[in-house]
Design a protein around this nucleic acid. Structure first.
Lengths: 340, 340
DNA sequence: TTGAAAGCGCTAACAT
DNA sequence: ATGTTAGCGCTTTCAA
């Protein structure tokens, strides 16, 4: 086992001071070419690498970003993570990552743990429980202690910091309009995420589209299904209203489950019922008919968040906070009729 | 902005030495109760947290594990990651994580970057390109420099270290047997991952099952589809052999795509054709009929890998290397006939 | 009961 | 051209 060597080892080897070695390796003009050469050769041969922990201590920068994600099994978050990772790596930043599992406590504890100097900043999306409890003190603490933060997707007005959000309102409005324009008269909203800020925004976009089209909002068509309710049973009750001819599902799994259900009920898709859902993962693309989705551009959101944080870390420390709104795209597939 | 305070600040505050503060905060018996009390109060009030970078430098331990994953959009890896994360957090370890995107270069560069002292050890699964090139020098280097490593899923015999692998051979054999036992006569193997060690093992398990059942191996039924070939076109050619009545797909997306294809071709599932696939993600569960899958227990694999590494980091440094083989489970759903 | 000093690995200002 | 010193924040002898 060829352990890592330090400047000290090299200094001893050549009977010079540690400072000389340090300068030689950084190619300082203060050091003679000869000395530089032999030291550099030795360093390479022995695979010298500066100890980044020592550098972090010295520079008070760790080149590390903390990322907290509510749930990595969720396609959208996985995409965002990939985007963050890519931009971070490009800029020489490492990622310390953590999954909050939608738990407020895990989110809080992680932040407390990581505020100890290992990080230059945070990128995070709030846990569901945090959004329900509206308890944001841990975020404020981090900011107060000088840790820049970028919030994405699930954000809160209670905290002032950089943010990257999806235009959920507009995405839902546009999708609802598309349903209306392709002939749907009775569109139900299916939400299993009404706890989340994004769920509420999407619902508002849906309502707005209805109003703009002179369609009355029917509360019976706004379906909120809780985590612990049986989805299929709830949907069957909803679908007992056979006049429903459009479904706007606020995330992908409820759309796929609904699709399979209505197929069993011998609905023709999209003739009898059109479906659109948020989150453009594999699920909606692989089922038949393929489901029209609202893409939130997860990867791009991750890239944007990472870029914003890195910019702040490397300079514009006091620039005013920004909120970037990423437009959604409607990806038309087979579960909706074609526009006229 | 209330910046983080250090021992020095506290020492100045009370006109004592840094050492006294340090001892007071660690509740040393050397320090008087009075002093301890006032220092502790002040520390809490000012939210003192020891700087973990300084501690890392001192202890030469970072309590951080590097995790390299080929692709986070893959359900299996996402599950493994969640498992690693959970066990790591439980034991007070942070995760520096990185996505290799199946690229050998990214894997290599990441490891080089992280070998600089930020990590206590690695957990990784090899990038596809690494398995193709069979270039493992970067792994050897890390081990030589004293960084313990746990390899999972995509491993290699060329490296001696702890490993956690799926019993791919047995899983495929068992699944193939299940197809045979439920009446399939002509079972095709569909592999889009023949580059990977796990793909090869699964193919062997399939062959073994055929042999054991006295069924001749027909090379025309062993279908390897490359990344750049069109999956559907290739499958149509395969299915022109209408005697095929069973499909063993080596990962989930090819199974779902095949399912949708054969449904369009008016096959009855499972009557005309049975399907089993590896990887128990959402995809196979949400389509109709639900696909019978081989679960690799991703989360458990992650937990096991993390536990192995942490054990090695905290003691059994020189224990002999272990390879843990995790048994798969066959999850029977609607795409296979019931056993008699 | 408290403090001084050394050291983890490194850089940078300041000698020589 | 090279070395000395100090210091990043902390713990741990050893001394007072």
């Amino acid at each position: 086992m060829r352990k890592r060597i330090t400047l000290k080892h090299i200094a001893n080897e050549f009977d010079v001071s540690i400072a000389t070695v340090s300068k030689a390796l950084s190619d300082s003009h203060e050091i003679s070419v000869k000395t530089k050469q032999k030291i550099r050769e030795y360093a390479i041969e022995h695979n010298y690498k500066p100890n980044s922990v020592a550098l972090s201590l010295l520079n008070k920068k760790t080149k590390t970003i903390g990322v907290i994600i509510p749930n990595i099994m969720n396609t959208f978050f996985a995409k965002v993570f990939a985007g963050i990772e890519e931009k971070a790596a490009e800029n020489g930043y490492s990622l310390i990552s953590c999954i909050s599992n939608e738990s407020h406590e895990k989110e809080l504890k992680t932040m407390e743990l990581l505020k100890n100097g290992t990080l230059d900043g945070f990128i995070l999306s709030l846990a569901e429980e945090t959004q329900v409890k509206e308890n944001y003190q841990h975020l404020r603490n981090a900011i107060n202690e000088g840790l820049p933060m970028v919030l994405f997707d699930r954000v809160t007005d209670a905290i002032e910091c950089d943010k990257v959000i999806v235009d959920d309102f507009e995405g839902a409005r546009h999708a609802t309009n598309h349903l209306i324009n392709t002939g749907c008269k009775r569109i139900a909203l299916i939400s299993v995420i009404d706890n989340l800020s994004v769920g509420k925004l999407r619902a508002k976009g849906y309502e707005k589209a209805l109003i703009e089209n002179g369609i009355e909002i029917d509360p019976r068509l706004i379906v909120k299904i809780g985590k612990h309710e049986d989805f299929e049973t709830s949907m069957k009750i909803v679908l007992s209203d056979t006049s429903i001819d459009g479904l706007l599902c606020l995330e992908e799994s409820s759309a796929v489950q609904s699709l399979e259900l209505v197929k069993r009920m011998h609905y023709k898709i999209p003739e009898d019922l059109s479906i659109i859902c948020f989150t453009n993962g594999k699920l909606p693309q692989y089922v038949s008919p393929k489901i029209t989705t609202i893409s939130q551009h997860g990867k791009y959101i991750g890239e944007t968040a990472a870029t914003m944080l890195i910019n702040r870390l490397q300079g514009d420390t006091d620039a005013p906070f920004e909120t970037k709104v990423i437009k959604t795209s409607l990806i038309k597939r087979e579960s909706t009729r074609s526009s006229f």
